[in-house]
Design a protein around this nucleic acid. Structure first.
Lengths: 162, 162
DNA sequence: ACCCTTTTCTTGACTGGGTCAAGAAAAGGA
DNA sequence: TCCTTTTCTTGACCCAGTCAAGAAAAGGGT
């Protein structure tokens, strides 16, 4: 698979280097990784790798079109190898988890506004904001916990004890 | 109109202060202003206003629901008073200009993905990326200029001169 | 296999956009 | 008016990322 990635890099007109292969590896394992995750992951194969090198690698990937950068509001940028299919993203407001959503159209721009205000549009970026399953569960537990606490406090205030 | 804004602030449960009124004024004049623009604008009415005060005011506005914060990738955050109608944005890739697009649905989330991956979705944020009219014109001019230069160079290379 | 040019990585300084914290000032209800 | 609470000022600090200069590595030509 290193071979495959080396091939991909050459196809994209990029030299094949260890930092680049490591970053590709991390990106394959973590489909929506931020720079920090990538640095940590890549260091397993290349311990001396610097953050700046990773920023450089990622910028080269994005410029070459083999990676895409997404920037959900309020979070560091994320990078993904899935490119060219104009898919969209679900983002968890609570934990920041990201999931892909296939675009039903598949080609950019998949949506066109009624009034373009004179703009020429080349892409419609869609972010669906919500709560991932884990965070829904956690919220339910917290709510239940709060209820229990309320109940206890009521009992204590009332003076009754089981 | 100061009166109106004061009223709006009170409605939102916020105290009426000069910094807040100034920021509201700037936001009314610049419907998609970044923090710096707001600081500069607000200082016309309140010269000693600090950037931190503006950040605080904006945070209070967003928390109170009288302003909305948008963060187009690669640009500082923008603030707008138009709130609660779930509209979307056109953003110019070249100059960063922003225009509003009415949402045909009007209530969030206006879009729902086919596969929610277990997420509960409360909002679909849509950003249309493109080129505003000015930047289209400028791009055309540059292209025309580049052609002219190419032509000259060809003539020079070929040795011919008019 | 080796050299040479070009690209890439390392190191380290620096920036932009913003947050956090403590005390001073102002808002507005009793 | 006084008093409490909120808000603003001042200044330190932080995160994510960029810029620049030199060292190292890639890979084409011989």
């Amino acid at each position: 698979m290193d071979t495959t990635w080396a091939h991909q890099l050459r196809e994209a007109g990029l030299r094949v280097t260890r930092p680049r292969l490591s970053v590709l590896g991390v990106l394959a394992d973590h489909p929506h990784a931020d720079a920090e995750t990538i640095v940590n992951g890549a260091r397993e194969q290349h311990p001396s790798l610097s953050p700046q090198a990773v920023y450089g690698v990622l910028k080269a990937f994005v410029a070459a079109g083999i990676a895409r950068r997404i920037e959900p509001a309020g979070a560091p940028a994320l990078f993904e190898l899935r490119v060219g299919d104009n898919h969209h993203h679900l983002v968890c407001r609570s934990c920041g988890a990201v999931a892909d959503v296939d675009c039903t159209v598949g080609a950019a721009p998949c949506l066109i506004p009624s009034d373009t205000a004179g703009f020429v549009i080349d892409e419609a970026e869609v972010v669906f904001w919500g709560l991932c399953r884990q965070c829904q569960d956690r919220a339910r537990q917290v709510a239940a916990g709060a209820e229990a606490v309320q109940y206890e406090q009521q009992e204590i205030r009332g003076g009754a004890r089981a």
